[in-house]
Computed example of a mutant assay.
Amino acid sequence: MADIEQAKATFAKFDADGDGRVTPDEFKSAMAAMGDHLVTGPMAEAVIKAKDSDGDGLMSFDEFWKSVQG
């Protein structure tokens, strides 16, 4: 996914409240909405933590964009 517009649209699916950051709960809910009901709270926290470069416990768009760049 190298297209920034596509990345923004995908990120928006996860950012339920539109604040520009994805919480583990938002991630888990978005995955369930996309049909993956097996993502648990701890799994969502691990995914966010892996992408969270500033250590705030959330995933910003910039962090998401860096992760999809490779």
Rank of each mutant, 00 (worst) to 15 (best):
residue 59 M to A: 00
residue 33 A to F: 08
residue 15 D to N: 11
residue 4 I to F: 07
residue 29 S to H: 09
residue 54 D to H: 02
residue 46 A to C: 04
residue 38 L to I: 09
residue 13 K to I: 14
residue 21 R to D: 15
residue 58 L to Q: 09
residue 47 V to S: 01
residue 24 P to F: 10
residue 4 I to Y: 02
residue 34 M to I: 11
residue 60 S to A: 06
residue 53 S to I: 15
residue 17 D to R: 06
residue 17 D to M: 08
residue 57 G to I: 09
residue 65 W to A: 11
residue 23 T to N: 03
residue 56 D to A: 09
residue 10 T to L: 13
residue 27 F to K: 02
residue 44 A to H: 00
residue 47 V to A: 07
residue 15 D to C: 05
residue 42 P to V: 05
residue 64 F to V: 00
residue 45 E to G: 06
residue 58 L to N: 05
residue 16 A to M: 12
residue 45 E to T: 11
residue 37 H to Y: 13
residue 67 S to E: 11
residue 11 F to W: 04
residue 31 M to K: 08
residue 68 V to G: 01
residue 28 K to E: 04
residue 10 T to C: 12
residue 31 M to V: 09
residue 67 S to L: 07
residue 8 K to P: 02
residue 37 H to T: 15
residue 15 D to R: 04
residue 54 D to G: 00
residue 58 L to C: 04
residue 43 M to F: 04
residue 68 V to M: 11
residue 24 P to L: 07
residue 26 E to C: 03
residue 15 D to Y: 07
residue 44 A to N: 01
residue 69 Q to E: 12
residue 67 S to Q: 11
residue 54 D to V: 03
residue 27 F to T: 08
residue 21 R to F: 15
residue 27 F to D: 01
residue 42 P to W: 03
residue 31 M to Y: 10
residue 36 D to M: 07
residue 39 V to E: 03
residue 64 F to P: 00
residue 23 T to W: 06
residue 25 D to A: 14
residue 45 E to A: 08
residue 39 V to C: 05
residue 29 S to L: 13
residue 41 G to W: 01
residue 49 K to L: 10
residue 64 F to W: 01
residue 41 G to Q: 10
residue 2 A to G: 14
residue 54 D to Y: 02
residue 27 F to N: 01
residue 22 V to F: 01
residue 28 K to V: 12
residue 49 K to R: 14
residue 64 F to S: 00
residue 58 L to K: 10
residue 6 Q to D: 15
residue 40 T to P: 05
residue 12 A to I: 10
residue 1 M to W: 13
residue 68 V to L: 10
residue 41 G to T: 12
residue 40 T to R: 00
residue 9 A to N: 09
residue 16 A to H: 12
residue 4 I to V: 15
residue 57 G to S: 11
residue 13 K to S: 11
residue 15 D to K: 03
residue 57 G to R: 06
residue 1 M to F: 14
